[in-house]
């Protein structure tokens, strides 16, 4: 709470699509610190060391990993950051499942920078209150 540096929120992006991540990283770089991992391998370690304020994760990672496994991993942590799930082919079924498992909201990957920022700001605000 009391430290010399200006508090900048860190966003952890979990996605195997480099092009998409590069795209949104450019949009968000001015406002947030961005950390990017491509799989769930080291997700807990990354959360503990980098203390992200939000996780932005794709529903589908690689061929055999689904983003849903993320929630079982987060259960092991005392204070897991809120998760925003995203997908480039959203369906009602996956949204319902993701949000039942604990995602705070869902975002289609087609969302523009305005929508993305407003979702992130809203989640950050809810987290602080």
């Amino acid at each position: 709470m009391i430290s010399g540096v200006v508090q900048e929120d860190t966003i952890l992006i979990i996605d195997d699509d480099d092009v998409y991540v590069e795209d949104i990283a450019i949009m968000l770089r001015n406002k947030y610190r961005i950390i990017h991992i491509k799989s769930l391998d080291r997700v807990c370690e990354t959360i503990i060391t980098d203390k992200p304020s939000i996780i932005l994760s794709d529903m589908f990672l690689g061929d055999d990993e689904t983003g849903m496994e993320l929630f079982s991993m987060l259960e092991k942590l005392d204070h897991a950051p809120p998760v925003v799930m995203m997908s480039d082919r959203p369906s009602v079924k996956v949204i319902v499942e993701a949000m039942n498992r604990g995602a705070v909201t869902f975002m289609p990957k087609s969302a523009g920078v305005d929508e993305l920022t407003s979702i992130l700001e809203q989640v950050l605000e809810d987290r602080k209150s």
Binding site: P90, I95, V96, M99, N100, T105, F106, P108
Partner: peptide, 15 residues
Amino acid sequence: VDTAVEAMKRGAFSY
């Protein structure tokens, strides 16, 4: 998809 997110946020068990 849009109403699904809204419904879940408001506490629906499913949609």
